[in-house]
Design a protein around this nucleic acid. Sequence first.
DNA 1: TTAGCTTTGTGAAGGAATTCACAAGCCCCT
DNA 2: AGGGGCTTGTGAATTCCTTCACAAAGCTAA
Lengths: 211, 211
Amino acid sequence: MKRIAESTVRRLSLYLRFLEDFEERGLATISSDELAARGGTTSAQVRKDLSFFGSFGKRGLGYAVPELASRLRDILGLGREWRVIIIGAGKIGSALAQYRGFTQRGFHVVGVYDSDPAKIGKRIDGFSVRDLATLERDMAREDVDIAVLTVPAEAAQQVVTRVVKAGIGAVMNFAPVQLQVPDHIALKNVNMAMELEGLSFALANRTGLDE
Amino acid sequence: MKRIAESTVRRLSLYLRFLEDFEERGLATISSDELAARGGTTSAQVRKDLSFFGSFGKRGLGYAVPELASRLRDILGLGREWRVIIIGAGKIGSALAQYRGFTQRGFHVVGVYDSDPAKIGKRIDGFSVRDLATLERDMAREDVDIAVLTVPAEAAQQVVTRVVKAGIGAVMNFAPVQLQVPDHIALKNVNMAMELEGLSFALANRTGLDE
DNA sequence: TTAGCTTTGTGAAGGAATTCACAAGCCCCT
DNA sequence: AGGGGCTTGTGAATTCCTTCACAAAGCTAA
């Protein structure tokens, strides 16, 4: 398959959310134009994005809402449950562990880890925080697809090396460092400070930057 | 000034973090090559990014670490304090209110709001959660630069309209909706679900997508 | 002072993503 | 059955971003 741009995948994700909205409201079809208006993009962009994966619409009519939603879920791999561990039971890690949006979209948190003895054993939303030392043993026992890293920046590289070695497929990194991982591992960085600095730049330079 | 790409600003933010690292360790100069290696990019990219704002290096030598760091802070508007309000005192909002990284980089949280009577008045890390109804009155009294939105998706557009009307300059939106704001308002979306779906896509399609 | 090594700054080239624009297809109405 | 009105799917054009490649400059050492 042709390489799909990151930006395309992000938009597919957006489209899906709108489609689910429409689905709930019982609408049968939607046009690329309507989808575009919701997502702040253009109808050509919507059609191009979808065209990478096939042609799902009917000319003159638009897209069948439930069908397109279902196709997008397939494309995005949301048909199955992904098993997630959260490493780092601090503020952010705990908030994420309790975040309902995860489960709603098929991301099932199976474990929360920390290396701080004060946190190990604590209960967070039904999970008992596990000792990071047992990570490898646990991962050998239970399948884990995605690791969410909410550890301090200094520890992040070391931890990611461990989860990669233990066979993780994807990593979501909240630490403000650029992690080194092998090419076949999917890596996403979420960096609050960087986002804020983007806003700061815009404010300082009075540039609108609506995404 | 020429329009600066979003991606460039993100990288500047990264570079700055590395420079601060180097600064702490007392290194005097750094080359575009070293900066690039840290940031997972190329030296040409680093030089091009910087070139939009001037020429800060010395040929044959590289960049003076403290000087470049200081220039980047200026460019990113980190020389001053930005005043931030958080709207939505749920899990994520509370975690952000307590997030030290904000203050460390000059983002000063001046208020936390909610409209739920059960949350109003509660203390979060030194703040008493304010009634959202008083938003406009408060904003007229105290300068606010940035609003962080951690409200439910259904409420987000309505709330953003209010803060924009009240004179906000920038918005960081955690709700999984695409907000409509005037062109002159800077808007950043942080969307956990979208990031996860990016990973899901990568896993489902076995595509490495190191950013 | 000059030669040799290094690294910047930047036009030009190349590549990637978005937008344009239109033929092809579908539906409805008469 | 044919015409009119819409909307898709997609090559081509365009715009935006990254990479190349090299002249210009600085430093060191002899």
